[in-house]
Design a protein around this nucleic acid. Structure first.
Length: 316
DNA sequence: AATCCCGCCAACCGCGTAACT
DNA sequence: CAGTTACGCGGTTGGCGGGAT
């Protein structure tokens, strides 16, 4: 049957917005609001635009107090922290950064922040495109370090990560500690959301990871993860996005506590691309590399996220 | 000076889902 | 309860500008 189009595509203008269109939309919404119906809005104003397009334009550019560019270090840190915690939920991340839009944050992450973090990787990964383009075979491309093996993991073998679950909580604790350092609770700062407070003190760029202990809050989060919940996380409702997986794999720095995610002997430096699926034990390889289809975000929220985050997600 | 290449970002597209009938 | 509609979200695309060759 197919989906009904949201507007008459033939009669709708696409592409960049003109100042006149911006002015019409802005003026109308400021005086009358959206009327709760974006689809009808363009007709009311006399704009030949799709309702979705109007909504996007308003949310991303025309509404008051929108900031563009100039992300601060603090904002960087919050974005990174939240990305580690919840993945590419840009709207949720944007909700923690007043004046920022999900689109802006998404673009910022994809074009700058991700590279800033991945910049710690060997250069061959960053320059692969350029090098390939010039048909130059570099030393790095030969050493195999950039070739993270990518065999498929049969769905029925995910169960075999169960043996990790016994020490899973300890590993998650160690993992979060390694990633973020001290997760302390520091509510009360003005204009600080609980979530920003919860995550804001992570230090992703710590050079030393000795003698850091997770806070009570993190411990309670971790302890709140049932074994099945931990299994669920391992199975790919992974809150550790692929980029970070790649970052760690490509990083020569040994990250303690990641064994349960990467598998003994497969984490750093040993996946040199010379292995074959026949010689590697893929049950030991992180399922985070192959995130399966998400089936129940709602359920995950309720079971595996801290109360603060669940509350925020629920309040959306 | 011309061309190529790449990064950035505004905008679009399609899907999931809530709300409504 | 099923079907329909609209919203909101995240992934992707395409045009533009600037740097490199």
């Amino acid at each position: 049957m197919g989906r009904a189009p949201c507007c008459d595509k033939a009669n709708v203008k696409k592409g960049p917005w003109s100042p006149e269109e911006d002015a019409k939309l802005k003026s109308y919404i400021e005086h009358h609001g959206t009327g709760g119906n974006w689809i009808a809005l363009p007709q009311k104003i006399g704009l030949k635009r799709c309702g979705k397009s109007c909504r996007l334009r308003w949310l991303n550019y025309l509404r008051p107090n929108i900031k563009h560019g100039g992300f601060s270090e603090e904002e960087d840190r919050i974005i990174c922290s939240l990305y580690v915690a919840i993945g590419s939920r840009w709207s949720i991340i944007a909700a923690q950064l007043p004046g920022r839009t999900d689109n802006d944050i998404k673009n910022y992450w994809n074009t700058k922040l991700k590279k800033k973090l991945l910049g710690k990787q060997p250069k061959n990964q960053q320059q692969a495109r350029r090098v390939c383009h010039k048909n130059q075979e570099t030393k790095e491309s030969k050493d195999g370090n950039s070739l993270w093996p990518t065999p498929p993991v049969p769905a029925d073998q995910f169960d075999q990560v169960d043996h990790h679950v016994s020490d899973g909580r300890a590993s998650i604790r160690k993992f979060l500690t390694t990633l973020g350092g001290r997760f302390s609770c520091n509510y009360g700062a003005e204009h600080e959301t609980p979530l920003a407070s919860f995550l804001g003190q992570q230090h992703l760029y710590r050079s030393s990871m000795d003698s850091i202990e997770p806070s009570e809050q993190v411990n309670s989060f971790i302890n709140g993860c049932s074994p099945s919940g931990y299994h669920h996380i391992l199975q790919g409702r992974s809150e550790i996005p692929v980029e970070f997986n790649e970052m760690f794999c490509g990083n020569s720095v040994k990250l303690e506590g990641l064994d349960c995610f990467f598998g003994v002997g497969n984490m750093v430096g040993e996946s040199n691309g010379t292995s074959t699926s026949g010689s590697m034990n893929w049950n030991e390889v992180s399922p985070l590399i192959y995130p399966p289809v998400v089936t129940s975000y709602q359920g995950m929220q309720q079971q595996y996220l801290p109360d603060e985050l669940v509350h925020l997600l629920g309040a959306q």
